[in-house]
Amino acid sequence: MYKISEFSEMTGLTKETLRYYAEVKLLEPAYVHPKNHYRYYDDGSYFLAVLLVKLRQFEFTIQEMISVMEDESFANLETLLQEKRDNIQLQIHHLQLKINEIDVFLATGREIEE
Rank of each mutant, 00 (worst) to 15 (best):
N36A: 06
V53F: 01
Y2C: 07
I88G: 09
S45W: 01
F58E: 06
M65H: 00
Q96P: 05
Q89T: 12
I62F: 03
M10E: 12
H33S: 04
E28G: 00
L90F: 09
K25Y: 05
R85G: 10
T79A: 15
L77D: 08
L48S: 13
V68H: 01
K3G: 14
G44S: 13
P34F: 00
L81N: 07
V24Y: 02
T17Y: 00
M69A: 02
V24A: 03
L18H: 03
E83W: 07
D86E: 15
S5I: 12
G44C: 10
L52M: 09
Y46K: 10
H93G: 05
V53W: 00
L13W: 02
T11M: 04
E28W: 00
H93V: 08
E28V: 07
T79Q: 15
Q57I: 12
T14V: 14
F7I: 04
Y2P: 03
V53T: 05
Y20W: 14
F58A: 14
Y2M: 11
L55Q: 00
H93I: 05
M65C: 06
S73G: 12
V50Y: 03
Y31V: 08
V53G: 02
Y31E: 11
S73C: 06
Q63C: 08
F60P: 03
K3V: 15
N87F: 11
E9G: 06
Y38I: 04
K54P: 05
D71W: 05
Q96Y: 06
Q63F: 04
H33I: 01
V50F: 07
L26N: 00
R39G: 01
L48P: 03
T14A: 15
Q91N: 15
E6A: 10
S5L: 08
L80E: 07
E6C: 08
R85K: 15
E6R: 07
Q63I: 13
K35I: 09
E9P: 04
H37I: 02
E83L: 11
Y2L: 11
E23Q: 06
L18W: 03
P29M: 06
R56A: 12
R39H: 04
L95H: 11
M65R: 00
I4S: 00
S73I: 05
F47C: 14
P29T: 10
R19L: 13
D42I: 15
L77Q: 08
K15M: 09
D71K: 11
L81E: 09
D43T: 13
S73H: 04
H33F: 02
F74C: 10
L55D: 02
G12I: 09
Q57C: 09
Y38A: 01
L90E: 15
E59K: 14
L18S: 03
N36S: 09
T11P: 03
L48D: 14
H94R: 11
L52F: 10
M10L: 15
P34C: 02
Y2R: 01
D86R: 13
I66C: 11
G12L: 09
Y31L: 07
N87D: 14
H37D: 03
T11V: 07
L13F: 13
L95D: 13
Q96N: 12
Y41W: 05
E70R: 10
K54A: 11
E59P: 08
R19H: 11
H33P: 02
V50L: 12
P29V: 10
F74P: 08
D43Q: 11
A22M: 07
V50I: 14
